[in-house]
Design a protein around this nucleic acid. Structure first.
Lengths: 334, 334
DNA sequence: TTGAAAGCGTTACCAG
DNA sequence: CTGGTAACGCTTTCAA
């Protein structure tokens, strides 16, 4: 592999000059620039990015921490991020935190030890305090789907209260009055917010919230099936079930079907996230769109702007959910 | 950030010695090793991985190129790979090739320019010749789901002929004799192989292959719906439809339902890949399992073994598919 | 506009 | 077992 030294020799200029043309430094005469580029192509020169990093103290790499590499939610997010960065020749190093505090912490340290210039974090288990502490360190980061007041400007979030509200409002408008709800784990802000939106819509329609119709899940499919069973065997009847995400809705659907319910005729079900497979389940699931791909891109832009000082489209921190109506909700026959 | 130099000063030893204890070089007395480790923790020393890379000519990073970051197929693959590497403190840089020749090539060059020690490639559009040429370069790589004779030992593949055979055999055993088939793009080896397996099973049951019942898709959902329409409007009737992957099967199901067919009663459908959402579609899709997570891990092991000279479980290059029976196939009433 | 030279933080070779 | 020192390939002052 040719080095900058060989290029400089062939071109008959100094190392510094070669470096200058590489970095598009304007202070190079056209003549010498030409000599250098010719020498570069002649030697098939490729800069060694490791050496560049060491000398410039900039690794051009950004760390991306997600809960799972698999799963329908993270795919579009990673995709938005990778696309945005590759255009700028930054590379992304990925790690998975598996919603576990210790593993999330390890992953962050791993990424930092790899000299990432910035981090994009989708973390769930790690504490606010840890992140606030981390923000005092030298590696900048953005948070996706997590709001911490002290770090507000770097929190890219969805208006989950509104999303919860939209979902329930839609169900109410179809005439349902007995509505069950499977929430996410309520120590998580997003789960709380979605539930809050639910209650708000209920209140607006003068329907009192029935604790009996609430089940706390964990955003995973199995808790959807467990939740349905629990609610179905309870004392309060319901004609519609709202789940705080699509995975749980899927689990609930499977479970409902096992209990011989006909969907959607005997039970309307609503999801949240608009994960790609929701149009494939049967009946196609009505849900709330979470523009995670765009939010991923925004996170990338944040890094591009704050860390690399690139000009990007205006940064936006709060995103709005949208109702997606498909066929899993029917109007209540009363 | 403390450097190795400060550690050496505090410990009262030379740089070389500090380096030795970091790299677990045995030639260090317990006493000095102790002094050094104490100094390290005292300073909160963290080695600079960039400098290590430059000096050792090893970046400890491996490049991973997939077609899409999203989509149900690649998630489990990436997951298997990331897990295997992080255990060994190697990091993975991801890139997406989008099944496009130029973008795949760019991605490979990008990864190489990032000094990856090795590459894991899931490429579709790039030519055999390019890869053979690439194999002469200095960056080692493994291929997933692609077989090139000249590169056989680094091709991690599924026995697709057998998978195709298994799928069709199952359908035949349920008494179907008029079986339609939506293939992948036939310039791809895996699509060819799956179809070959299909034909083989047919032959074994003395059923002649009917060209009228074949539609060439492109492995994407829409071609499943297009394929179903085409076949359904054709002259040959069929009671079962086999698709060369799950996405197309899903598209076909939706389309069949739009044509008012009742599934699975009026049409049995079979998929391929056993992508995670297949159990969520309705009726739950019978399919063929593609152990992509394990194959990803194996690719990681290949790199670990060949590039980093680690000892790993025995390398395996050919994986076997398995039939997954769910409820989308019924026995043919005849 | 250009060149010389001092880093960047390690590793690895060669002596001792 | 330990220390000295030359790389590794580039960026970035500082002078000219």
């Amino acid at each position: 592999m040719a080095t900058i030294y060989e290029v400089s020799k062939l071109a008959g200029v100094s190392l510094a000059t070669v470096s200058r043309v590489m970095n598009n430094n304007t202070n190079v005469s056209d003549a010498t620039r030409k000599k250098v580029t010719v020498a570069m192509t002649q030697l098939g020169y490729r800069p060694n990015s490791i050496a560049q990093s060491l000398a410039s103290n900039c690794s051009n790499s950004v760390g991306l921490l997600v809960s799972e590499l698999q799963g329908p939610f993270y795919g579009p997010m990673m995709s938005g991020i990778e696309t945005a960065f590759r255009k700028q020749s930054k590379h992304v190093i990925i790690a998975a935190g598996h919603s576990d505090e210790e593993r999330e912490q390890q992953a962050i340290e791993f990424l930092i030890s790899r000299n990432c210039d910035g981090l994009i974090l989708h973390v769930e288990a790690i504490s606010d305090d840890y992140l606030i502490e981390l923000s005092k360190g030298k590696t900048p980061f953005v948070l996706i789907n997590r709001y911490i007041r002290e770090l507000a400007s770097r929190c890219i979030i969805l208006n989950n209260v509104k999303g919860g509200y939209l979902a329930t409002k839609h169900v109410l408008e179809q005439g349902h009055t007995n509505i069950a709800y499977i929430s996410g784990p309520l120590w998580k802000q997003d789960a709380q917010d979605r539930l809050a939106g639910h209650k708000q819509a209920l209140a607006e329609h003068n329907i009192s919230f029935n604790e009996q119709l609430l089940y706390q899940g964990d955003f995973m499919e199995d808790s959807g099936t467990a939740g349905f069973q629990h609610l179905y065997n309870g004392n309060s009847k319901f004609t519609a079930l709202i789940c705080a995400n699509d995975e749980m809705a899927t689990g609930a659907m499977a479970s409902a079907r096992e209990s011989s319910l006909i969907l959607p005729e005997q039970l309307s079900i609503m999801g949240y996230d608009n994960v790609f497979f929701t149009r494939h389940v049967y009946p196609p699931l009505s849900t709330v769109n979470y523009p995670i791909n765009e939010m991923g891109q925004m996170a990338a832009n944040w890094i591009l702007s704050e860390v690399y000082k690139k000009t990007t489209p205006a940064l936006q921190t709060l995103f709005e959910p949208e109702l997606v109506v498909r066929q899993s909700i029917i109007t209540n026959p009363q």
